Amino acid sequence: MERGLRTDTPEPHGAFASFIRFVILGGGVGLASSAAVVLLATFLPFALANALIAVVSTVLATELHARFTFASGRRRGGRGLLRCGLRHHLKSAGTAAAAYGVTTLAMLVLYACESAPSLAVEQIVYLSASALAGIGRFLTLRLYVFATARSRPAPVTHDLHRSRPHRELLTIAS
């Protein structure tokens, strides 16, 4: 568990509400990032501008998701701009990289199947892959990265010493 993070804060208003917040906050960061890349690319090579914006937007989205989407990223002291720990940021970056991989793979498969797809087909494939990757990212962030002690499922254990074997139960019942 991350040192200094609260683990007893329940997620406000359930999974559906947190998914809506995830879409709004993540989409907002995505729209702002696309505008920022265009602006920054006037001063820097596009690849460098894109890489810088990708890092900044991932950190920003992680902070927003920790604070508002999953309400789990509050440090007890509350000092500093970044309230998530390095582990949260690295795990979130991993989910963003996986989502990038899903969308890239989808487009590569499209181009392998059809050398010159129409713009509409490209958008359908890309947006479908993005939606699928986004749902996977939400679930991973919710269940793994920002899971609190209350929201983590309890491990299933079977205590052999406390439960009676099936045969013994049958003889007791007879």
Score class of each variant (00 low, 15 high):
residue 22 F to P: 03
residue 39 L to Q: 07
residue 57 S to D: 06
residue 63 E to C: 05
residue 137 R to A: 14
residue 70 F to G: 05
residue 49 A to G: 12
residue 59 V to E: 02
residue 131 A to W: 11
residue 4 G to N: 11
residue 76 R to L: 12
residue 33 S to G: 15
residue 164 R to A: 13
residue 69 T to S: 10
residue 156 V to K: 11
residue 166 H to Q: 09
residue 151 S to D: 11
residue 31 L to M: 12
residue 19 F to W: 09
residue 103 T to L: 04
residue 142 R to M: 01
residue 57 S to A: 15
residue 98 A to W: 10
residue 58 T to H: 03
residue 123 Q to P: 00
residue 70 F to Y: 15
residue 160 L to R: 11
residue 30 G to I: 01
residue 153 P to I: 01
residue 64 L to I: 08
residue 140 T to C: 13
residue 15 A to N: 01
residue 115 S to F: 00
residue 155 P to E: 13
residue 65 H to I: 01
residue 70 F to I: 05
residue 120 A to I: 10
residue 104 T to R: 08
residue 174 S to E: 12
residue 147 A to N: 05
residue 168 E to N: 00
residue 87 R to V: 07
residue 172 I to M: 10
residue 115 S to A: 15
residue 127 L to T: 11
residue 26 G to V: 09
residue 172 I to R: 15
residue 148 T to H: 02
residue 157 T to E: 12
residue 108 L to S: 09
residue 16 F to C: 04
residue 106 A to R: 07
residue 4 G to L: 08
residue 55 V to W: 08
residue 140 T to M: 13
residue 96 A to C: 04
residue 49 A to W: 05
residue 162 R to T: 14
residue 13 H to T: 08
residue 32 A to Y: 03
residue 170 L to E: 13
residue 97 A to E: 00
residue 53 I to A: 01
residue 93 A to P: 02
residue 18 S to E: 02
residue 89 H to M: 10
residue 86 L to T: 12
residue 41 A to E: 09
residue 75 R to M: 09
residue 163 S to I: 10
residue 19 F to P: 00
residue 3 R to W: 11
residue 139 L to G: 00
residue 34 S to T: 12
residue 72 S to D: 03
residue 51 A to L: 14
residue 174 S to V: 04
residue 171 T to N: 06
residue 20 I to G: 09
residue 170 L to R: 14
residue 27 G to F: 03
residue 141 L to E: 15
residue 11 E to C: 11
residue 28 G to W: 09
residue 31 L to N: 02
residue 92 S to V: 06
residue 158 H to S: 04
residue 88 H to M: 00
residue 134 G to L: 07
residue 171 T to P: 00
residue 160 L to Q: 07
residue 115 S to M: 02
residue 30 G to W: 07
residue 29 V to K: 05
residue 27 G to H: 06
residue 22 F to T: 05
residue 81 L to H: 06
residue 13 H to C: 07
residue 126 Y to R: 13
residue 49 A to L: 03
residue 164 R to H: 11
residue 75 R to H: 08
residue 93 A to W: 05
residue 167 R to T: 10
residue 113 C to E: 02
residue 16 F to A: 14
residue 100 Y to E: 01
residue 173 A to N: 08
residue 81 L to A: 14
residue 95 T to V: 12
residue 92 S to Q: 09
residue 73 G to W: 04
residue 10 P to G: 03
residue 15 A to P: 00
residue 60 L to M: 13
residue 146 F to E: 04
residue 122 E to T: 05
residue 34 S to Y: 09
residue 5 L to N: 01
residue 77 G to A: 14
residue 74 R to D: 12
residue 133 A to G: 07
residue 54 A to S: 14
residue 41 A to C: 01
residue 35 A to I: 09
residue 74 R to V: 06
residue 112 A to M: 06
residue 163 S to V: 14
residue 66 A to R: 10
residue 87 R to E: 09
residue 110 L to C: 02
residue 39 L to M: 07
residue 38 V to L: 11
